Every structure is written in C-alpha cells, then in structure tokens.
Amino acid sequence: MTISDAAFESRLKESAAATQTMLLTLLSDAVLPDELARPERLMAAMRHGSLNGGKRLRPFLVRESALLLGGDDDAALRVGTALECLHCYSLIHDDLPAMDDDDTRRGQPTVHKAFDYATAILAGDSLLTYAFDIIAAPETQLPDRAKTELVLALARAAGAGGMAGGQALDLAAETSPPDEAGIRMLQAMKTGALIRFGCEAGAIIAGASAHDRQTLRLFGQKIGLAFQLADDLLDLTADAATMGKATGKDAARGKGTLVGLHGIDWAEKHLDELTAEAVELLAPYGEKAMMLQATARFVANRQN
C-alpha cells in the first residue's frame, strides 16, 4: 500500500502553506522582546528571500518525521520554519557574485539583484541567526534538553563541517575537480546535511529512542544524496523556466558531478537504488511511514 501522488501533493502543499504563514508571522515588522528595532529595508530583503514560494521540503520532513514518532506538530512546524530560514539564508548567500553568481531564484530576482550586495549579506546573516532564535524561543514548546539537541544538531549540519563547508568544497571544485569520493562528500555536506537534519529533528522533537533517531538520520542521508543526484540530472535535462533558475552552470564551470562522472543512465539507476533503500529503512514502521516513503519517491522523481 502506498500514498497516491495526489494525496502526497496535497499534504506537501498544506505543509508549505503552514510554513509560509509561520514565516509571515515571524518576519513581520513587530519588534520582539530584547530587540531594539527591525530595519525596514533589511526585513523586506529577508522576506524577499524567504517568502518566494518553493516546496518547503525541509520543514515538511521535520513535521512528517515528528508525526511518525508521535512528536508535537506545533513544535515541529516552528522547528521546520527555523530550518527553512536557515536554508533561505544559504540560498541568498549562494546566489551572490562571490559564490554561484545567480540573478534569478524561484523565477524572481535574487536578493542582491532586488536590493544590493550588502543588504543580501545582512539578510542572510539575519535569517541564519533567527533560525536558532526560533528554536530557543519560549513559543517553541519543547523541553530544554530537546532544544539544546536541536540547536547542536542544526549548528553541526549548517556549519564548517556541514553545509557551509560543503559550499567551500564546491567553490574549490571549480579549480580542482574532486574525485568520486570528493564529490560524494561535497554533496553530503552542501545539500545532504540540512535534509538529514530535517529528518533527525523529528525524532528529537518526539523524544524518540536512539535507534529511531539513527533510522531517521540514515533515511535523511539517503534522500539527501537522492535530492542532489536528481538536481544534477535536472541541471542537464531541464530548462531554466522549469527550474526557476539558471541551468547547466556546473558543467560550464567544470564542476564534477556524479552524473558527469558516470552518465545519465547510471545516475537514474543509482537514484532508483537510493530511493528503494530509503523506503526499506522505514518499512518496520508500517503504514505510519507511508508519507515519508512517498517523500523519498518525490525527491527522486521531481521535475524542478
């Protein structure tokens, strides 16, 4: 028994709408206790970089992983929104001329194009910091131990040993193409780390066992690799209008990818294998895991 595509898409859209609503609330101009002011232009740039649509896959993973293990959905929504703030910071900074130098994101001008370079940097900095604020805030009703574990896990996933380090490796790859092991490490850090956290966070929110937490972590690692592999395939096969951003840039810059290394046929086969492995990991949870299993298939089969 599996979830239909329509049922999955409906659930994903509902979660994205809930995340959007939470972002609108959190990124309002209302000053919080111990804040002095919220500069108008900075807040506008933060909203431009985070309220521009998208599937909100990472918050969805937090909520569905928490639901699988009996965690509180209100807390999961806030933690998922924190993760989305951090993800959006990374996109704002990645789009800068010193990084990937992109002019469009999700079909609209990137933050540094809509505003300016300095404002884009500050908007990213603010969203990054705000992610940890959201988790630690009293409105996120979780035990202090859970909040500490979430902050630590997110910091490790986002920092020098995770996403930011992966971006550093990605920049280095332009002048010194990595071997297959290097490509896998780069992708596991730059893309996979936040997806892995999204799954593991649900277990932390639910106060689940070490075994459950490790299972969700492994599931996140599998679909994180699948997400990047699908992205690399789309970079070669999809057009910019479909993707909402420029395509073919990795190949133009000489960056190594697993698709470039092994070819499209191998990549599609490996993508199927990763999806099957991810689905099988959650088989012991029975019907409760069907939505997350559908997510693994969605990651592999998405068109943008």
Rank of each mutant, 00 (worst) to 15 (best):
A240E: 15
L233K: 02
S15H: 05
P39Q: 00
P97G: 11
Y117V: 15
T129E: 00
M46D: 01
A300Y: 08
K245R: 09
A296V: 12
D179Q: 15
L233N: 13
S4I: 11
E40R: 13
S10P: 02
A168N: 01
I205C: 03
L67W: 08
Q303F: 12
A300P: 07
T110H: 08
T247R: 05
Y89I: 10
A193H: 06
T140C: 09
V31F: 09
Y130C: 05
L186K: 12
D250H: 11
F227D: 06
A66I: 04
A193L: 06
T129P: 00
T148N: 06
I205N: 00
D94P: 13
F132R: 00
L261F: 12
V111M: 00
A210H: 14
A82G: 04
D5P: 03
A252W: 07
L171W: 04
L42N: 00
F115H: 11
A241G: 04
M22L: 13
G107N: 10
G244Y: 06
A18T: 10
P33E: 09
L67H: 12
Y130W: 04
M1C: 07
Q167A: 05
S50Q: 01
A201Q: 06
I204R: 06
E139G: 05
A181R: 09
Q20P: 03
L36S: 15
I134P: 03
I264N: 11
L150H: 05
F8G: 05
M1H: 06
L26G: 01
P138Y: 04
R56W: 04
